[in-house]
């Protein structure tokens, strides 16, 4: 699914410049502990989190994630946004709880691979 479609469907707030709107989102990973994301997220994943620390940018860049969505109305540090633009990582914000965001992503068709195979 295209990142631009997801942004529209979930009415996400754009926190940075929009880098790679035509990029395909492969899957979703949800966590606030960055160590978990380091161990488990995959390339092209959308990372859904409450974490607004600048380390999210370095990791998103390293793992080549499609974007980071900071949910639950959590604030993101200015430094994080500056670094994200430097690294060309798209950051989005939302006041919706991340459970709601995850649910909407699921409905959009971004289901865990194990479930997709069952269909």
């Amino acid at each position: 699914m295209l990142l631009s479609q997801i942004v529209k469907e979930l009415t996400l707030d754009q926190l940075t410049d929009f880098h790679g709107a035509e990029r395909t989102v492969g899957g979703v990973y949800v966590a606030d502990l960055i160590s978990l994301v380091m161990a488990n997220a995959k390339q092209d994943d959308l990372w859904l989190t409450h974490q607004g620390h600048q380390n999210i940018v370095a990791l998103a860049s390293l793992l080549r994630l499609s974007c980071v969505v900071i949910g639950g109305g959590m604030r993101c540090q200015e430094e994080t946004i500056r670094k994200a633009n430097e690294e060309k990582i798209s950051l989005f914000g939302s006041t919706l709880p991340i459970y709601e965001l995850a649910g909407r992503l699921y409905v959009c068709g971004l289901q865990p691979s194990a479930y997709a195979e069952m269909d």
């Binding site: 606030d32 960055i34 160590s35 994301v37 380091m38 620390h53 380390n55 370095a58």
Partner: peptide
């Protein structure tokens, strides 16, 4: 595994 710089932020900023 929690409440620590390395678990929560992945690496020393």
């Amino acid at each position: 595994p929690q409440y620590s710089l390395l678990a929560n932020l992945g690496f020393v900023p």
